[in-house]
Simulated assay, not measured.
Amino acid sequence: MADPAVIAHRGFAGVVPENTVAAARNVAEHTDASLLEMDVQPAACGTPVVIHDERLEGTRDGRPLTDAEGLVWETDLETIRNASVLGTAEPVPTLAELLEAIPETMAVNVELKNPGTAAIRFGESLPEDDRGERKAIWKPFVQRVVADCDAFAGELLFSSFCEGALAAVRDIAPAYAAAPLIWDDLEAGLEIARRYDCEAIHPPRNAIAGTGLAETEYAGLSSGDEPAIDLLEAAHDDGRAVNVWTAETWTQFDQLAEAGVDGIIADYPGLGTVSSQ
């Protein structure tokens, strides 16, 4: 069995300030990660910036995410770029700045978080009548993201919890790989992957049948029950890679690797090394 690819979640958020240039450089220079995962949203001017939360004043273990406040997409670019991340000297970067800071040998997973509105359709397989509208909402932002990514010659994978984002990617840049992120509806994730012929699918760690993690509560899925479908088998039968999020310990990583997933999105470097010893 091949070892799963290690995907650095927000640039290994467990050890370096997440979604920063410092995190990206650390992944590229000091780890064996196969992909760097990052989150993008627009500033008020539409420029893609690399940040996870909708609001600048989110928290991580009681520490403010940044020293600024407000909705990201309502905040001017200068304020965002001057905001320090988790009390460090690292600012929130633009997508272009982060991509310029890493070698093109580093593959990148760009998660499309939000196009600049609170009215997103999260984790849904959309009715046919709604798909065009949702794609149109995402399209201006996705065009800006793709323009920045086109300047980066490394391998790229776009992922999102929103079907509209994936529809826009397929319309604007069909040559790039894409993957739906799954929340609590496994069937919806498979439907979206098939609808847009996605190269991969990204389920939560407790969606993988036959592991101890499958009986734990996480990411909208309840504890105590095996998943209703064998998502790993179904995706592999369709010819799609399965990249699972998020491993926080080496024992979680080990269970997912033994199950045969293709990639593991992890908060810490070295989890795969520990599990193989």
Rank of each mutant, 00 (worst) to 15 (best):
L166H: 07
E199D: 14
G164H: 01
E155S: 15
C162M: 10
A214Y: 05
E215T: 11
S223T: 06
G212M: 11
D197V: 13
D225W: 04
P203Y: 10
V169D: 00
R195G: 01
P203F: 12
S160D: 08
F158L: 09
F158A: 11
P227K: 07
S223A: 15
Y218H: 15
L157G: 00
L221F: 09
A175C: 07
A179T: 07
V146H: 02
L213D: 09
E217M: 03
I192P: 00
V145F: 07
S159C: 04
P174G: 04
A188M: 11
G189S: 12
A200E: 10
V146S: 13
T211M: 11
L156D: 10
L181F: 05
D230W: 06
Y176L: 05
Q143K: 14
R170G: 12
D148I: 04
T211L: 09
D184F: 06
I208N: 00
Y196K: 02
I208Y: 01
D184P: 00
I208R: 01
A207N: 03
A168Q: 11
W183P: 04
L157F: 04
D148M: 06
D148Q: 13
T216C: 08
A177C: 11
L166G: 02
R195W: 09
A153Y: 08
Y176V: 13
A153F: 08
A147Q: 10
I182K: 05
A147I: 03
S222E: 13
T216W: 07
G154N: 04
G164P: 01
E163M: 09
A179K: 01
C149P: 00
A177G: 08
Q143S: 15
G210Q: 01
S223P: 09
A207W: 02
D185H: 00
S160K: 05
L221P: 01
S160G: 14
R205F: 10
R195F: 07
R170A: 15
D197N: 12
H202L: 12
C149S: 14
P180Y: 02
S223G: 10
L156Q: 11
D225V: 08
L221D: 04
I208F: 05
D171F: 09
E199W: 08
I201V: 14
I201D: 00
T211V: 14
P174Q: 07
L166T: 05
